[in-house]
């Protein structure tokens, strides 16, 4: 990751800033410049809902080197409450809770860092809701 491109996209990474088509109302994450449904270029920024459900997940035991300390990495396919789907790293995982339909919420976590002297990259991850975990 490059610090300047991270800085330009930080609202997407830390506030789930996506986009909405003013013409047909379709919502997107990550943001788009042209609506994939109606091809309109009349697009506005739109913050995505922070809640959704887990559709499925996979477990990476050999992730990229920069994620070494985080191994194993759990990647989840999430459907947000507005229907938008995204792939996200999962946080504080207890594998027995990773069920289809489990309610999840966005949290901010460290993604990675540019070594001990560089920038720390923060961004969204999703975590199974405590109420579901406790039930």
């Amino acid at each position: 990751m490059i610090p300047i491109s991270y800085w330009r996209n930080r609202r997407s990474y830390t506030a789930l800033m996506g986009s909405r088509c003013r013409a047909c109302g379709a919502e997107y994450f990550p943001p788009v410049r042209v609506c994939r449904k109606c091809k309109s270029r009349d697009i506005e920024p739109r913050e995505m809902p922070r809640k959704g459900t887990l559709i499925t997940y996979t477990k990476l035991t050999e992730p990229a080197e920069e994620f070494g300390k985080q191994t194993p990495v759990y990647l989840g396919l999430i459907e947000l409450s507005n229907g938008v789907k995204l792939v996200s790293t999962l946080a504080d995982v207890s594998e027995s809770e990773l069920n289809e339909g489990a309610p999840v919420s966005m949290v901010i976590r460290r993604w990675t860092e540019e070594g001990p002297t560089g920038i720390i990259y923060y961004g969204y991850k999703f975590k199974v809701d405590a109420a579901y975990s406790m039930s």
Binding site: K69, Q70, A91, D92, V107, I108, R109, R110, W111, I120, Y122, K125
Partner: peptide, 13 residues
């Protein structure tokens, strides 16, 4: 704190 948590992440929460 988990490996991906620090003062920033907990403060946002």
């Amino acid at each position: 704190a988990c490996f991906d948590e620090d003062v920033v992440t907990m403060s946002v929460e």
